[in-house]
Amino acid sequence: MFFGGASDVSGRVDAVFLYIAALTAAFLVFITALMIYFVVKYSRKRNPNPADIRSHAWLEVTWTAIPLVLFLSMFYYGWTNYHYMRSVPRDAMVVKVTGRQWAWSFSYPNGKGTSELVLAVRRPVKLEFTSPDVVHGFYIPAFRVKQDVVPGQTNWTWFTPEKEGVYDIECTVICGVSHSYMLSKVHVVPEERFKAWYFSDAVEPPAETAEAASGGPLAGDPDRGRLVYAGKACATCHTLDGARLVGPSWKGLYGSRETVVTDGKERPVTVDDTYIARSIRAPGADVVKGYPPAMVLPHSLDDQEVADVVAFLKTLK
């Protein structure tokens, strides 16, 4: 469905969701239409003499029984799929997850510890949650999995990621001032890449995973790029109208030729996708001549967001 599910669980959750959505939408339309029809048909003007109908036993029985049966079918459908979500396959890889104010950390069976979750596609994983401080909620919307992380007990969930890509992890239980920044990512990569990463010393997730997943360079979206510009504090230093702040304005920047200072030496560059990506990833590497090497990223950008910023820059002629 339109919310982009990416695990075995998401298909099941969406199926129950759609089943209930279809039934309830039909019910709502029926009730509303009937209500409007009655209000028009039996208005004071059209029907000045009301009938006096007090009750109808069979009607009451009918509209008790039909909803009851439908509700029970929803219950049953929900339960069977929930049952699946509580039955872990034996071969699931166990990753221990700790939620603390305000960060997630992941610990793999071989002792590897990370701050972002890396998983092999189509391989079941069981997550075990603990918290040293307060209650948190572990949520991957794209996978439709959520579990409260409660101090003093170990909760768990499991799922099989089915699509390669990078997905958001969010905290869902209010845990203090930075609750909404208690975010992380889950990277789903092919089995071989996962193995290579797993047995290496790297704690950073394997690079350009999203690009690999889509089989080529990421398509940027200028509208989302504008949001990144506004939301990730780019606007603090870069204007869109040609005015100079701490950093160069983005107006007409894409495609222009600039002189940059690399390791103390000046050299000319053309502002293209690669240069922009490098400037974001390593802001101190090539600094445009005449500007201070002052750029800091208060929020990290993922590959998709970088591509979006590039697309946005292209629109600023």
Binding site: V9, R12, V13, V16, F17, I20, A21, T24, F27, L28, I31, T32, F71, M74, F75, Y77, G78, W79, N81, Y82, M85, G137, Y139, P141, R144, V145, K146, T172, V173
Partner: peptide, 21 residues
């Protein structure tokens, strides 16, 4: 009606996991 019907989503187990909180 909308309030009550969306309650059915919340009550349904698999869906609840997704939309809770």
């Amino acid at each position: 009606c909308i309030g009550g019907l969306t309650g059915l989503f919340n009550g349904a187990l698999a869906v609840n996991v997704h939309i809770h909180d």
